[in-house]
Amino acid sequence: MPPEVAQSSDSKRKSDNGPFSDASSSYWPEGWSWARYSDPEVDFSTLSEEEKDKMRQGLQEMLGDDGMGRMALYLRKKMSEWEDKKLQEQGAPPPEYKAPDFLKQWQKRHPDGPWGFVAFRTALYDDEQKWTEFKRRVRCILQVAFDQVVEQHRGHEYEDVAKARKSFELNWIEDRELDGASAETLRKRHIELKKEEDAPTGMNYNMFLCASPEAVESVLLLDDDNLPTTKSSFWRDDAPFLLVIMEEAELNPHGGEENEYDPNDPNDERNWYKSVFKVPVEIIPNNLWDLIDRAFMQPTRLTRGVKGSTELGGTMPENYTPEGLAELWWGVAPSPQALKKRRILRGL
């Protein structure tokens, strides 16, 4: 059955405190709370060293090492936003525009037309209202990549950013015959589409996206107040996603069949390749598009650290990594948890 669309409710609104609260510490000095502790203008000089130490220990007890790391990142970002707001209020000019890598690539390759990805619809053909709502939410989430650039420039949206934002799109392929289609069926349709004279320009890649039933559900189960924002953390497993489907179901990066092949060898690149995997919607315009458009990375290395998806049929290898495979593809850089495990394994 199609997923129910979550409704907005005041009880689900995100707190200004972010992912932390008074429960983040087992000890607060009298008159203190998370709101006061995280205030950029807080004055810690009113506390004794003993009280400050007890508060740090209370945070460590409740959050652990990983939580303390996330808290530090959250507080740094909150301080940066507060400083930016003060500069804006003082009438300071916006900072010089520094394009991130994905917008440098866009400016170089696709500045005068649409850019993005082809995306197939394989769900909700019996409910157009929910499909329309799904696409609206996806459009909202895609804005996060551009909103981040605006935030990095103290809230100022430069012309290039606005132009890139406006021209980025997912070219939806909708055909009732694709309802519940397998990955192989979609691959054949994608190859046919690329041969057509009116094939979408700027989207001629060896992969495409798919709104599968599970992907649709991941988007519709969130209410508007809980859609991803620039404050959402990376590497979370519950982010709304679309499927990435590679044109090639299998790859042999080592050449001919004469090469001995062990499907359990973690060092054999053929075991790293996942032809279908999940990507968070919020990083599609920047992290995913930038790597795909530059086309400098072997597909096997692109998917080494992520789980494959079998929702659309087929089987996927499960190669070994010390930190385990990520549920969603957040990029090719190691996660903070992976870096921590590597340090432990090295005895650092």
Rank of each mutant, 00 (worst) to 15 (best):
Phe241Gln: 00
Lys274Leu: 02
Val244Gly: 03
Val281Pro: 00
Asn287Pro: 15
Gly256Ser: 14
Asp262Glu: 11
Glu247Gly: 04
His254Cys: 02
Met207Gly: 05
Val244Asn: 03
Pro285Gly: 12
Ala249Gln: 15
Pro240Ile: 04
Met203Trp: 10
Gly202Val: 03
Ala239Thr: 05
Glu258Tyr: 14
Leu222Trp: 13
Glu269Asp: 07
Val216Gln: 04
Asp224Pro: 05
Glu214Ala: 15
Trp235Leu: 07
Gly255Lys: 03
Ala249Leu: 10
Asn286Arg: 06
Asp238His: 11
His254Trp: 08
Cys210Pro: 01
Glu247Cys: 11
Leu251Thr: 08
Asn264Ile: 00
Ile245Glu: 05
Val276Gly: 05
Pro285Ser: 13
Glu258Ile: 13
Met246Tyr: 00
Pro266Cys: 01
Leu251Trp: 04
Ser233Asn: 12
Asp224Arg: 06
Pro228Asp: 11
Leu288Gln: 10
Glu269Leu: 09
Glu258Phe: 14
Tyr273Trp: 00
Pro263Asp: 06
Asn204Ile: 09
Ser212Arg: 08
Tyr273Pro: 00
Asp223Gly: 02
Val244Ala: 04
Ala249His: 09
Lys231Gln: 14
Asp237His: 13
Pro240Met: 09
Asn204Tyr: 11
Glu250Lys: 08
Asp225Arg: 13
Gly202Ala: 04
Glu248Lys: 10
Trp235Phe: 13
Arg236Leu: 15
Ala239Trp: 01
Pro266Phe: 03
Val216Tyr: 05
Glu258Cys: 13
Met203Ala: 09
Leu243Ile: 03
Asn286Met: 02
Val279Lys: 04
